[in-house]
Design a protein around this nucleic acid. Structure first.
Lengths: 247, 247
DNA sequence: CGAGTACTTGAGGATACTCAACGGTCGTGG
DNA sequence: CCACGACCGTTGAGTATCCTCAAGTACTCG
């Protein structure tokens, strides 16, 4: 009685439901949101600094990242986004974007008009709180990354980011047998952790030889969660996940 | 006809007005918010990881910081807050705090109950958007700090943080003749920039001898804005300030 | 099969850290 | 009024983590 189970909106609903349990009515309202689907290629800017979008997008498939480039030309990746995430939700209240968002893999995106979101919030005031909460969790992740980059050494830093991705993918049901698709290059990990690709590569080798990760192309397997969690000093409180999706 | 001009709420109103111009009616509603004032000493935790506060606070006087401690015992300061700021506004939608907030100078704080805020939002829906915007700007600052720590070298990093503080203080009218009160120790700057106090000290000496800053106790003077702005690669877009307060 | 991209390896070097000690200032109390 | 402790800032010497530069190897795709 609920809805088309394969509507692209479902992945976003699953994500939101993982951080704040939704009623059936709210899920229905979200399912009915008008959405425009677009496919984009790898390494394509979705929005750029200075843009003033009238819409935001959520990820149906693929990974995106938020980045800025320093005047010296160095790129910092500030966030990675996985299916279900809404990377530019902030544009709802910050009209002028101060960041770039790009795909780092082939992506399927769903675009929602701001006006449709605002209408939704009028009818379902609790949902405004859920979306607000979503933006606050992104802020919380930024803070954790600050701790990560500022205080942890390279080995823990990379272990931490892998732990985070695994839990976030698990929340939307994209982890099976401790294995998940992670289409992130070592160069991108480098830009996300404030390191060089060369050093990331060396740390990856150390993580592999210590049995913390197994990689095969872009598939990542975590043989021993406790071990990598400890290495990454990972405490999931900051993700504010309330409910894990069973996969 | 507005209100008691010296009510403690005014500093918060001035801050909010700087990021989203308020109507007189909205200012009045904010002035009427019930507030409890408390004075606290330096280096005192206001809230801690795991707390579930039913209120949030704004700063009337003094500076606070948001911090976390890694398992290795290293402290990362993720944000500095100045008068007018609402450091724990996120607690409105993230019930369990994942951060600590502490004073770094003697502070006067105003506490607002969550229920009073929610009531305010019901009567003035636009204000909910303003407070949401406020949390989004904090997120934007976190992102800029990521760029700062991840990609810039020590000299620019410290110049940048000084630029930011000056602009934020200017927005609430706390800068006179390019001089402002900055009660932040070098050890705190170190924890905020992911450096050691020793190295911060050396960079401060370089900044002084290059004529970018002048310090006298906790008073900071910026003789040449363009120079330090350039050194810090500082672009204020990310602060999303719409209106500067004249001092 | 060639070009592009990602990954890997080596050697040398620089930024920033660690450890340790000293000086200056301020508030407190005898 | 001076002595004391506490905190902050400063300086020096040695060092480690991570960077730079450079080249070479796999893999994928048209």
């Amino acid at each position: 009685m609920t809805t088309a189970p394969d509507s692209p909106n479902q992945i976003m609903i699953r994500k939101l439901d993982s951080i704040f349990v939704l009623t059936d009515e709210e899920k229905q309202a979200l399912t009915d949101l008008p959405v425009q689907i677009k496919n984009i290629k790898t390494n394509h800017d979705i929005v750029r600094v200075g843009d003033q979008p009238a819409q935001c997008c959520f990820i149906v498939e693929g990974f995106t990242c938020v980045y800025k480039v320093s005047i010296e030309g160095k790129r910092q990746i500030m966030a990675l986004h996985v299916p279900g995430d809404i990377p530019d939700l902030q544009s709802l209240h910050l009209r002028v974007l101060d960041i770039n968002i790009a795909s780092i893999s082939p992506c399927k995106l769903g675009f929602i008009q701001h006006k449709d979101l605002n209408q939704l919030f009028e009818r379902h005031p609790r949902l405004a709180g859920v979306f607000w909460r979503e933006t606050l969790i992104y802020a919380s992740i930024f803070r954790e990354w600050l701790l990560n980059i500022g205080q942890r050494e390279a080995y823990s830093r990379i272990a931490h980011i892998i732990c985070e991705l695994m839990l976030r993918l698990k929340a939307v049901g994209l982890v099976e047998n401790n294995t998940f698709h992670m289409p992130v290059t070592q160069a991108e990990i480098a830009d996300a952790t404030g390191m060089t690709p060369v050093h990331v590569n060396r740390v990856f080798q150390a993580l592999r030889s210590d049995g913390l990760i197994q990689t095969d192309k872009s598939r990542m397997t975590i043989p021993d969660w406790n071990k990598i969690q400890q290495a990454g000093e990972f405490d999931p409180l900051y993700l504010h996940i309330e409910k894990d999706a069973a996969s």
